[in-house]
Design a binder for these strands. Structure first.
Length: 650
RNA sequence: GCUGAAAUAGCUCAGUUGGUAGAGCACUUCACUCGUAAUGAAGGGGUCGCCGGUUCAAAUCCGGCUUUCAGCUCCA
């Protein structure tokens, strides 16, 4: 058999051979740091015996997948330590994840002290250095074996494996775990690990199941890497919008107002106002018509839209269905409201596409544990819109929505931080959706054709569709790596029928339009959260709630400072004057801490010569270039002499 | 909603066996009128998240609630 290595060299063997032995043949050094291997692109265990021609890539902890094997083995060490200290604990599952690994146990919850003790035990286990061995058992024996060991979760896992599945186990010393692998040859290469936190997690991710105790940890092959990771996490915390946004007085929450109901403070409100003015103007330029529709409606509206059936739990209902003649609900979306705008007159194919936009507060009754900062709230404002289109217009209009979304992302400097997701229905739970499987297949295929036509890279995810249609979701991650939807463009083939929306086509026949639901920059609060984290609070100039601060050297120059400020304000620059009786060094320090991009220092010299002394941080982002240039020009105008511009490293 | 942790001055936090509440920053006042990251001095400010219980006595112990955080589940 011929084995092609990653560097292109070829090894030939007469008989079959284990990968670990090949690694030793290449070099002992490699064999010692090897964690797993990739055979024809598939990640496998080092124990795998090769018996036919293949491409072989031996992985170490420096490879993402190799690191995964190291972390997976660390999770087994964790499980062994837990079983030693808490013999009554039952094992569930323990995979590696992006940031490390976790293991779920049926056990009393673990405290930080417990984690420290478990960590110490893990160190002991690694030091003992037992060899890790793999063995397989036939299904029946595997079940009997795990029953004997008293591991009901493992038994359930085996029972759910397909009939023909290979059931493999890994052992290290006395500890045995059901596992598909791959694993290291021993726990020795685990040089640096840490148990991060513990929490609850439902068995198999289902809230109806028992809650297990989960331990999160991370592992690296080098101590320095672990240290760097821990330091990185500390840095990341400083960017966390929920901390920084409060510190910067962009938003706040108040106990008696309630969960998920943040107050946008003057600075935060100013940023959102800037975003709103910008996006509304842009939408108008792109042919959108603005609507302003009620924030609540009678229950009957939601019955027609089927939100009452599919979304009632998520709505704030006003009134009692049993007692009151009329029951209202705050709106969780604007769809049906804009549909009735459409329905106010008979539409011709000449009227389509009909593009409606609305800056709309929405209300969603999220579960109490879900709220988080500005990213998950009960009342939020969305750049909402609906396009009513003929079947022929779908492709072009959908493309227009994606184009607008991309324009928003680029202007905000977020275009490289997002991924695209095609959110599809779940064929096994069709009760969650309107319509039939056939229609869904049709529309989902239509989405794929449109997206391929537009040419964007996307990932398909089942079970994430809206109840009325598939979605293209623009996903972004926060500083901790948690992903949320930022922008969404959805195709809807059901609600037009529910609301009996029609247009008269060329042939004089009444026809059913399609509807595109879309957001341009999504939810303002959530977008603000991403901007805070993206720029660590140092916003592009055009978004800054305060763009220029004039700093008079002393009280004598207040009049001149105000003159300068008035001149800037005349040009719509957001400008203030620091009139406090503080020294200039102190004012500069505070202005920098307030993250104001431009400071204009004025004193005797400037007042006399009618100049300003500029100090700025220049960000050079696309959205601000014009404004930065404009401010610089204005400063020049104010001055009669050359600008002294001090650029400061942030 | 579930599991766990937390809540002390505007902010960051001290306050261990239950005995009359503390620091730094911020704020106010006064002096200094100042040239590119912190001038000095004095002062004010807390029913220790809320409600109830135990106790002669509760920031401290117990219970309930509210809010926040880490996850799970759910979602823009």
């Amino acid at each position: 058999m011929k084995i092609t290595l990653k560097d292109g060299s070829i090894k030939e063997y007469e008989k079959s051979k284990a990968i670990i032995d090949i690694a030793y043949e290449i070099s002992e050094g490699l064999a010692r740091v090897a964690t797993a291997a990739q055979v024809d692109g598939k990640v496998v265990d080092l124990r795998t015996v090769l018996s036919q021609d293949c491409e072989l890539d031996i992985l170490t902890a420096n490879d993402e997948k190799g690191l995964g094997a190291l972390r997976h083995t660390t999770s087994h060490v964790l499980a062994e330590a837990v079983k030693r200290l808490y013999p009554e604990a039952k094992l569930a599952i323990g995979p590696s994840i992006d940031t490390g690994f976790y293991y779920d146990f049926e056990s009393e919850p673990f405290s930080r002290e417990d984690l420290d003790a478990i960590e110490a035990e893990m160190k002991k286990i690694i030091k003992e250095g037992a060899k890790i061995q793999r063995f397989e058992l036939p299904r029946k024996e595997a079940i009997a074996y795990m029953e004997e060991k008293g591991e009901p979760y493992k038994v359930e896992l085996i029972q759910d494996l397909p009939e023909d599945a290979v059931i493999s186990f890994y052992s290290q010393g006395d500890f045995v775990d059901l596992c598909a692998g791959p694993h290291l040859m021993s726990a020795k290469p685990i040089k640096a690990f840490k148990l991060i936190s513990s929490s609850g997690a439902y068995w198999r991710g289902n809230e109806k199941n028992k809650m297990l105790a989960r331990i999160y940890g991370t592992a690296f092959s080098k101590k320095e890497e672990l240290k760097a990771y821990m330091e990185h996490m500390e840095e990341v915390k400083k960017r966390d919008h929920n901390k920084l946004g409060r510190e910067m007085e962009l938003f706040a929450t108040v106990d008696v107002i309630g969960q998920g109901l943040p107050l946008l403070m003057p600075k935060g409100a100013m940023i959102i106002q800037t975003l709103q003015r910008w996006i509304e103007d842009e939408e108008e330029r792109r042919g959108y018509m603005r609507t302003k529709t009620p924030l609540m409606a009678k229950k009957e509206l939601y019955v027609i839209s089927d939100h009452w059936e599919h979304y009632k739990e998520g709505m704030f209902v006003l009134g009692d269905e049993e007692k009151d003649d009329e029951v209202f609900a705050l709106r969780p979306m604007t769809c049906p409201f804009q549909y009735y705008v459409y329905k106010q007159s008979q539409k011709s194919y000449r009227d389509l596409p009909c593009r409606y936009g609305e800056t709309s507060p929405l209300f969603r009754n999220e579960d109490s544990g879900e709220m988080h900062g500005l990213t998950r709230v009960r009342q939020f404002t969305i750049a909402e819109g609906h396009l009513v289109v003929t079947p022929e217009q779908i492709d072009e209009e959908f493309r227009g929505c994606v184009d607008l979304a991309k324009y928003c992302l680029t202007t905000l400097g977020l275009e490289k931080d997002v991924t695209y997701q095609l959110s599809l229905s779940d064929p096994e739970h069709m009760d969650k959706y309107l319509g039939t499987r056939e229609t869904w297949n049709e529309v989902e295929d239509m989405m794929r054709v449109i997206l391929d036509h537009i040419g964007i890279q996307y990932k398909e995810v089942k079970g994430e569709a809206a109840f009325y249609g598939p979605k293209l979701d623009v996903q972004a991650k926060n500083v901790y790596g948690k992903e949320d939807t930022m922008i969404t463009v959805q195709l809807d083939m059901f609600l037009a029928e529910r609301f009996d929306m029609t247009f008269v086509d060329k042939d004089g026949e009444k026809k059913r339009p399609y509807i595109i639901h879309r957001t341009s920059l999504g939810c303002y609060e959530r977008t603000l959260a991403w901007l805070i984290e993206k720029y660590a609070g140092l916003f592009p100039t055009w978004l800054c709630p305060e763009q220029v601060r004039v700093l008079p050297i002393s009280e004598k120059y207040h009049e001149y400072a105000n003159q300068v400020a008035e001149e800037l304000k005349d040009h719509n620059i957001k400008c203030t004057v620091d009139e406090r009786g503080e020294k200039i060094g102190y004012k500069i320090r505070e202005t920098r801490l307030d993250k104001v991009p431009y400071m204009l220092v004025v004193g005797a010299k400037e007042a006399e010569e009618h100049t300003v002394s500029v100090r700025s941080r220049y960000l050079g982002d696309e959205g601000s270039k014009k404004l930065d240039g404009f401010i610089a020009e204005l400063c020049k105008e104010i001055k009669t002499k050359e600008i002294r511009k001090i650029e400061v490293e942030e």
